[in-house]
């Protein structure tokens, strides 16, 4: 079932779309063991978006599944970097300098 193509998120990861996104992301997770997220289309991201990604990770962990973010847009990677969450997500991301050391 891991042959699923990455889920391309095109909505902004913001509070305005949080309800829709939660459903969309959880639905996507429900049908696969290994969810791949392509966030390269995400133009905006705020704290609500960050929460959703964390939630998704936690849900996946609980169910023994995996979530991977395979592509980041600038907005996503800079927010994750700012919040120092790159390690948490464990995805290939431009690694911030202080983590590298």
């Amino acid at each position: 079932m891991s042959a699923q193509p990455p889920l391309v998120v095109s909505l902004p990861l913001t509070i305005y779309h949080a309800l829709d996104l939660k459903q969309q992301l959880l639905d996507a997770l429900a049908v696969t063991d290994e969810l791949e997220l392509n966030l390269s289309q995400v133009a905006e991201m705020d704290a609500a978006g960050l929460q959703l990604l964390v939630l998704l990770k936690k849900e996946a962990q609980r169910a023994g599944k995996r979530v991977r973010i395979v592509a980041h847009s600038q907005a996503v990677s800079s927010l994750i970097d700012f919040c120092n969450m790159a390690a948490e997500f464990g995805d290939p991301l431009v690694i911030p300098a202080h983590e590298a050391g």
């Binding site: 939660k22 704290a47 609500a48 960050l50 929460q51 936690k58 700012f82 948490e88 202080h98």
Partner: peptide, 23 residues
């Protein structure tokens, strides 16, 4: 200098309201 984001308060999916803040 450094920041840690605390996400422990995020509940399980069913209880999680995506418009609430848990951070």
């Amino acid at each position: 200098l450094n920041i840690a984001t605390i996400t422990d308060a995020i509940p399980v999916a069913a209880e999680m309201d995506p418009e609430s803040c848990y951070l």
